[in-house]
Design a protein around this nucleic acid. Sequence first.
DNA 1: TCTAATTAGTTCCGCACCGTACGTAATTAT
DNA 2: ATAATTACGTACGGTGCGGAACTAATTAGA
Lengths: 409, 409
Amino acid sequence: MREMNSWAILARLKSAPSMSVSALSAATGLSRQAVGRSLEGLASAGLVQFLQPDRTAARSGRPAQLVRFRAEAGKVLGVCLGPKEIRVAVADLLGNVVSSEVTQLPANAPAQEAVASLLAAIETVLLAAGSEQQDLWWATVGTPGIVDPETGFIKLIPSMTGLAGNLLARSLRDALTCPVYLDNDIKLAAQGAHRQDAQDVSPSLVFISWGERVGAGILLNGELYRGSSNDAGDIGFLDLVVDTRQAMTATAQTERAGLGRFEAWVGTAELLHLARISANEHFDSKLLTHLKTVDDYAAFDAFVAAVRADKPAALAALNEVCRRFALGILAVRAILDPDLIVLGGWMAKCGERLIDTLLVNLSNQQLGAPRIELSELDDDAVVQGAIAHALSELNRAKFHRPGAGRTPV
Amino acid sequence: MREMNSWAILARLKSAPSMSVSALSAATGLSRQAVGRSLEGLASAGLVQFLQPDRTAARSGRPAQLVRFRAEAGKVLGVCLGPKEIRVAVADLLGNVVSSEVTQLPANAPAQEAVASLLAAIETVLLAAGSEQQDLWWATVGTPGIVDPETGFIKLIPSMTGLAGNLLARSLRDALTCPVYLDNDIKLAAQGAHRQDAQDVSPSLVFISWGERVGAGILLNGELYRGSSNDAGDIGFLDLVVDTRQAMTATAQTERAGLGRFEAWVGTAELLHLARISANEHFDSKLLTHLKTVDDYAAFDAFVAAVRADKPAALAALNEVCRRFALGILAVRAILDPDLIVLGGWMAKCGERLIDTLLVNLSNQQLGAPRIELSELDDDAVVQGAIAHALSELNRAKFHRPGAGRTPV
DNA sequence: TCTAATTAGTTCCGCACCGTACGTAATTAT
DNA sequence: ATAATTACGTACGGTGCGGAACTAATTAGA
């Protein structure tokens, strides 16, 4: 009961650098004394701090005693562990990143090495943040693949097969004293996108990662929605009946990479394929050369550059892939009708042009087009999401006693 | 605070015909005294009733005083207002239907007449239930079309154009003293399906009505999900890239009826169309004659009969339409990953064969097929859903003080 | 038949907490 | 200086929970 009030007070306090007790009382609807009592408890727990009255306010009457949320009272760790790089960040209780690091991983690094790098990176970041390990209150790790969030067991992780199983969770739990939580990277990125968006304004949000693969994270009422087999948002496996000409391309891709049908049809691999054809047709030999680089990353960067330079060959390929992708967005729109769709992943590098092209291809649909935005977090989407998740879990753990579902009061 | 406890006690009490105070105390985790105090209040509000101890229990010790939820303390009204008929039911606070009625409507009856019939039906049903109008605590009405549930304003209702606007809500609110709530029929049916399914076992459920049109109601965590523009589940407007041959049929239908692309492609109109072709190809002239009836209802019934009689012509058409519909189900599966999909609408009359055929057509997909069941409620799905909705709204209204979002305790 | 055991209900009290009322402290305005 | 203003602090009554001890109603067994 006190807990609930404390929670409400903290929630209010977090959104301002400091507030007076009276202001809190007015904002929460509680009496001043109740607020005072709760604050006492919070202060002794180190979560809030009383400040000297602010003389500069220049209002008549006794100056208010200000109280501040001590964001520095604890730290959370956000991690994104991908096949190419490891991103680690330490944030305070308001989600402000205190220190962060990006570590490159050699191609096809063995799992043991990746884990070792991660642990080293965590140590470095903690040091840079001036924090000890026991200052960490929560750690959330995002990684591509299918993760059981209850246990941290990685069921399937094609891009880093060695990490399948318990290795990562066990290593982290051995190394850290705080709770360690593992989840799918896209699901976490969705929570990061929510945070980025003007707080609480979008009760339903779908984050779609559009790269070689396509996946979505779904947030409803600000809560991650997982689905019955922790599989919701797996739109890479949509099956849109493709017409015969396109079917061949797509089928070939599917066989090659084990992708879902939709992602094989709209993913960056298919896009590059289309772009090469288009470059050929447009006699854009310079672009074609770039696109034929062995390194897919480089080829894609060349494509993005061409789009930004308004090269017709690139724009044609972009339009075709957007025409297809629009059907996926439409499916999300028809089924979920979200307030906002946020696009992330490699394709987001194409910039606003991507949104525009998508909207054009959605405009002839019977349903109204949804709001679509680009992810602003870019590569940090997952780390930010991990931090957002960690904070919300902390909240739940500290104040919600999740066990019974019902509060005995 | 007492309210929360009372709510928990009632929730427990509803799931058993009667319970002892001690058993309730154990079940809720509250102390016996707290339970007793809450029960006192509930009893004086007429919501529970103390019973004579049950001697037959034959356990040693003092016999427990039993307490029972007084389901008869209030009534709710569930209504389904369709273009062909009006279904009305009065149920007690446990959702048991006390009396119900079905009134046929003449084809193209004017709105005024439909409303008058409805009011008359309500009077009849109340009389049959032995209830007065003031015994009604809540009325929920389902109707096809787009309804603003906040106000009860009907924005669009193609099958009964005269009902667009405030007429229905106003008439009912004039006639009844209890809160009157209007909503889309399919959204309500979804809530009915949830109730039918072993209580609380499916936190996420999608009810798909498959008839001439196709629409879905989405229940997540037992709550109806509406989407940002009250439009979630509008899967009739899915756009699956159809191959050229099929595209022609589908496009023709779309133009003709203003349907969404998906429903034009899988709806009963298209099904009958396919069935006629198939009957022709199979030289099934008897079926063909039946299918050519002017009355779509009769034609469809003939089709269902043919399916149940294993006629190859009918099965071929069914299979084709299931092949297409499976892609829609797949989209729902990929995006929402629901625990259960319940099929209702005309197509449900095809029986288990429908499910089987769908599952066959889903089996070659990369994602695991979801659980699919037929709606058992049949024509009563909407009325049952309306009752379910009314009860849950009552719960919320009595115990949850929805206003502030935050409880000041 | 009478007593012990068993299970429930009841009463009383302490505790935690909230909110109202009123008194005190620290400013600014005149 | 004094009034006005604003905020803090303390005291008190009320609500409501849970624990402890007591009373009530029944069965098992001597």
